[in-house]
Amino acid sequence: MSLGKDHACVIVRAYKGIALVDTWTDSEIDLTVADYFAMLAEELAGRAVNKAARYRALAELIPRSAKSVERKHQNISAVMIGFGQPWIAGLKPARHYQLALEDGVQRWLDAHPGWLKPNRSAGVAQVVADTPRLWIGPPPTHRNEPPPVDPRLMAAVAMKYDIAGRDERNSALGRAGEAVVLHHERTTLVDAGRHDLAARVRWISDQDGDGFGYDIASFDQDGRERLIEVKTTNGWERTPFHISRNELAVSRERHDDWHLIRVYNFARRPSAFALRPPLESYVELTATSFSARFV
C-alpha cells in the first residue's frame, strides 16, 4: 500500500516482550532530518553543539520525547553512512530504522544539492592549505577494527540511491580530492630529497584532460612512475565509487605503475587508502550501465 506524505510510517519494536507501534509521519521526519543537518553543519564548522538542548527543542515542536528524538538522530547517523555523508560525532549509528528515514534524507539532499561542495572560488591552493596532511593507510578490508554498521546493508542503501554516481557527478569534490593528493605526492618527494621528481609531478586530468585512465602522474622515490587515479567522497571509507571502463583497462595494462587512491571523510578530516591492481582483490565490480545498439 502506498502511503501519502503525511501518513504515519509504522515500525514495530519489542519492549519487555510487548510489541509497541512507533509512528513518525513524513513531516516529523523532515523536521528531524533538517535538525540533524543543522547540527552537523555546526559541528563541521567547528562550533560546539548542545545536543540535549536541540533534542528538547525539537521534542516540543513535533511533539516527541527528547529520548525518542535522540534515538531518531542515531538512526539518521546510520542512514548518513549509507548515503556517503559525514555523520555527527557522538551519535552512534543505530541500524534498526524505519525505511522512511532514507527517503527523508534523500528529500533534504535533493533540496540542498551543494551543501558540502568545496568552495570553487577559494581556488586549489586554498583547498590544499585548509586540508591537514593526508594520511594514507591500508584499505578497510585489511584492517582489524569492525565497521560501525553492517557494510552490506549500507552498500544496499548506496546502490538504491546511486551514491557512487552522486560523488562522480560532484566535479568540485573530485577536483578538490585530486588537488590534495597532488600536494601529498609532491610533498612526499620533497621530504625524501627528490626535488627533481617533485617538480615533474603532473596533474594530468587538469592539465591534459580526462581520458588517460589516471589523474596524476607521479613517481616513487626511486624514480619509478606512479599513475594515480583519485576517487573522493565525503562519506566513510566503504562508500562505493564509480570506475570507468578505460580506468579499469589502464589499471590492467599498467598494473605495476597504476594506483587508485580513495580519499574519504573529505568534509571532516580527509584520509585515504591505496588499492593496487587487480581491483577485484578488494572490491566487487558491478556493471551499472550498458551500451545499446540496434541489430
Results as ranks from 00 to 15, higher is better:
R175M: 05
G17V: 14
M159T: 10
Y55F: 10
W135Q: 04
V201H: 03
L248V: 07
T188D: 03
R13P: 02
S289G: 10
S251A: 15
I163W: 01
V10L: 13
G82H: 06
A274G: 09
V250H: 01
W87D: 00
S244I: 08
Q207I: 03
V157T: 12
L91G: 00
D167L: 01
A8Q: 07
L173P: 03
P86C: 06
A8R: 11
I62T: 15
Q85M: 14
A156E: 13
Q207R: 12
A38P: 05
A176S: 04
W87K: 01
A267E: 01
V127G: 02
A158P: 05
G209F: 06
L197H: 04
A38W: 04
V12P: 07
E284I: 12
P132H: 07
T131F: 05
A274K: 14
R64D: 14
N265P: 08
V283T: 07
F273Q: 01
L285E: 08
S68V: 12
R186V: 02
L3S: 13
Q126D: 12
D6L: 12
D162R: 13
L20A: 09
V124G: 00
L44A: 05
T286D: 11
P270T: 04
L3G: 09
R238E: 11
H96I: 15
F37Q: 04
W258H: 09
R95W: 11
T23G: 11
A111T: 15
D150I: 12
S289C: 07
A48C: 04
H255W: 15
G174E: 00
E28F: 04
